Amino acid sequence: MATFINLLQILIFLVTAINASDDDVTWAKRVVTKNEVITTLQFYFHDKLSGQNPTAIRIAQSSQTNNNSSTLFGMLMMIDDPLTVGPDPASKIVGRARGMYGSAGQTDFGLIMVLSYGFLDGIYDGSSFSMLSINPVMQPVREMAIVGGTGLFRLARGYAIAHTYMADPATGDAVVGYNVTIATYV
C-alpha cells in the first residue's frame, strides 16, 4: 500500500509538471508542488547606450568623480531594456527590464541593480520580479538576488545568474543572458 501511495504521489507530481506547459512559452518552466511554485526563466537583456534610440541613459554623475575613473563610480543610469528569447535583438520580446543601475565600486566595476523585470508573454503577462543586488560586471558569470515580485511572482524569492553574451566597449551596448530561478507560494 505504501508503494502504491508513493507511486501515486510521483504520478501526480509529473502530471502537474506536464500541465504547467505555460501555453507555448518556451523561455520559462513552472513546477507546482504542494507548498510552492518553482519557476525557471531564460531570456536575454539588451542594454543599448548608443544610437538614436538608446534603452539606457545616464541620469546622474557625481561631481566628485574623476571622469577618467575606470569604474565610473557615482554614475547612475535609467533603463527600459527589452528582454528577448534569444540574443538577437530581433528575437521575440517577452518583457522589459525597467529601473536603475549605478556604478557602486571605487576599485572594481560593480553595478548596483535596482530593476523590475516585467513580462508580456503567455501566463506571465503582467507579472514581474524585482532585483536588488550588486552585479560584478567583469566576472564572466554572476549571481544576483531576487527580492520580490507581482502577479505570478508575488512574494518571490530567488536568484538570477547572468553571463555577458556580447559587450561593445566603444558604445557600452551589451547583451546579457539570464537564467533565473524563482520560488513563490502556491
Rank of each mutant, 00 (worst) to 15 (best):
F129E: 01
M113V: 12
Q139A: 09
Q139E: 10
P89K: 12
F119K: 01
V141L: 06
P87E: 04
L111K: 08
Q106L: 09
G110Y: 11
V141D: 04
L120V: 15
M138H: 12
M77Y: 06
S130P: 00
G95E: 01
M75P: 00
S133M: 06
M131L: 15
A97S: 14
T107D: 14
R98A: 10
Y124G: 01
S70K: 13
K92G: 04
D121A: 13
A90V: 09
A145T: 13
A104I: 04
I123W: 00
S91G: 11
S130A: 15
F73I: 08
G99E: 01
A145G: 05
L111V: 09
P140R: 04
S103M: 11
S130D: 14
D88Q: 10
Y101P: 02
V137T: 15
P89F: 10
G122P: 05
S116T: 14
R142A: 02
G118Y: 04
F109G: 01
L120Y: 13
D80N: 14
D125S: 15
G99S: 06
M131C: 13
G126L: 10
M100G: 01
P82H: 02
G102L: 09
D108W: 07
T107Y: 12
A90M: 09
G95W: 02
G126D: 05
M75E: 08
A145P: 00
A104N: 14
P140C: 03
V85S: 09
M100Q: 07
M100F: 14
G126E: 09
G95H: 05
P82C: 05
S128P: 03
S70W: 01
G74K: 06
A97Q: 02
L111W: 12
S133L: 09
F129K: 02
S130M: 10
G110M: 13
L83K: 05
P87Y: 01
S91M: 09
Y101D: 00
G102H: 00
G102V: 03
R96C: 04
A104H: 07
Q106C: 00
L120G: 01
D81F: 05
I123C: 02
M100D: 00
L72N: 11
V114Q: 06
F73R: 03
S116E: 14
M77L: 15
D125T: 14
G105D: 03
D88L: 09
D88K: 10
V114P: 01
D108H: 13
D88E: 13
V141I: 12
G95M: 09
Y117E: 13
P82V: 06
V137I: 15
M138N: 12
L111Q: 12
D88R: 07
L111I: 12
S127T: 05
L72Q: 08
A104F: 10
G126H: 10
I134F: 11
G126R: 11
S116W: 03
L83V: 08
Y101H: 06
Y124R: 08
G110Q: 12
S91I: 07
A97E: 03
F109Y: 14
M100T: 13
L132H: 13
G74I: 03
Q139R: 09
F119R: 03
S128W: 04
M78I: 12
P87I: 00
M78A: 15
L76H: 00
S70G: 06
V141G: 00
Q139P: 00
L83T: 07
I123L: 09
T107A: 08
R142H: 05
I123V: 14
M75C: 08
Y124S: 04
I112H: 12
F129D: 01
M131D: 03
S70V: 06
D81H: 05
R96A: 12
V141R: 06
